[in-house]
Design a protein around this nucleic acid. Structure first.
Lengths: 183, 183
DNA sequence: CTAAACGTTCAGAAATTATTGAAAGTTTAG
DNA sequence: CTAAACTTTCAATAATTTCTGAACGTTTAG
């Protein structure tokens, strides 16, 4: 499949950014390609378009499935697997976010939880544990916040995001209302 | 410098997580070590404690400085540079967040902006550009949100975070108040 | 001025990660 | 059952990233 220059440069960009987004070049390219394509693509089409081996496509798709970013589609009378993004751009971003906190935050949180069970045993540990405790708190708050936002409907989330720092003004507003109702 | 088992395992964990957080093992370890240490450390102390070469420490510190995560401290009558984290845990997390969006989002945003200037030139591009546009929107909203939250004071941000999905209930609350005031 | 005590750089070596392609596994049409 | 059309796996290889240590630069004490 030949890509237009513009689409090709987007796909290649996804490759370059791949490792920053948490996967590797090939996987970035595959995802970029699938997102750009209106039809689901077969493994062969993907491999030919990106000039990568059949085996590599298979591994890449497997990884993307573990991130819940692609789904398989079957076409009646055709034995091939056709791959497509598992949802809208919004949903994909959400999954990446979720999956990344699982990989980047959860392990640390669990280490810190264990580590903080015992009392400090000397001067150095006193300070170190204090620091660990702060990190622990921060991460707990972050994941709690993230988890709760996951359960909010996309529309409300959009409203919230569009509001930006207006959220803070709203906080003040609520404070005022609550206070004045106490009088 | 000999570390207690608990501190050592935290530092090693930072090493393992390093690449997931956007840097590499050594850099993760150095940062972990500095965060655990009440006193600023010299390059030699860092290298000896972590068993890494002098050159590697130098490069690691340089990288951490480019992330604005460590500062240098000088002690009168001592020629050595002493390194320490550039702020509280909260501030460090903030900087990592900021720096990562710079590296993970900005380049894509700029590619998309350019790419979306011209009209689609065929059927495939029509769909592809629509997708690019959605990604563009999402990233713009995200960065705007992030930028605005950066300008909010830590205390208010803490209140906001502790509130969690309560924020959404507040949205409803505001709606109600606004609506009822229209009667 | 010299030597010691630092920090920095960078070419080559080592370690890690990604990729290929051949072999093996699976499914289905005939 | 067999062959064809697929997918998956994995050992070997290639590419990339990280690390070392020697060479070099700078500053200052004596």
């Amino acid at each position: 499949m030949k890509l237009s220059p513009r689409i090709e440069s987007f796909v290649m960009h996804c490759g370059e950014m791949g490792s920053r987004w948490g996967f590797n070049r090939t996987i970035g390219q595959i995802m970029g390609l699938l997102v750009m394509s209106e039809q689901a693509l077969s493994a062969n089409e993907i491999g030919e378009t990106l000039s990568i081996s059949r085996g590599n496509v298979s591994m890449g798709i497997k990884e993307l499935q573990s991130w819940r970013l692609v789904n398989v589609q079957h076409i009646a009378g055709d034995r091939k697997d056709y791959y497509l993004p598992s949802g809208s751009i919004w949903e994909l971003a959400n999954r990446i976010f979720e999956e990344r906190s699982k990989r980047e935050i959860d392990p640390t949180l669990s280490l810190l939880r264990d580590s903080l069970l015992d009392e400090p045993s000397n001067q150095h540990e006193e300070y170190a544990l204090q620091q660990m405790d702060e990190i622990h708190d921060l991460l707990e708050t972050l994941t709690k916040w993230a988890r709760e936002l996951q359960s909010v409907s996309p529309e409300k989330l959009t409203t919230l995001m569009k509001l930006g720092s207006g959220v803070v003004k709203m906080l003040d507003f609520k404070d005022k209302v609550v206070k004045s109702s106490k009088h």
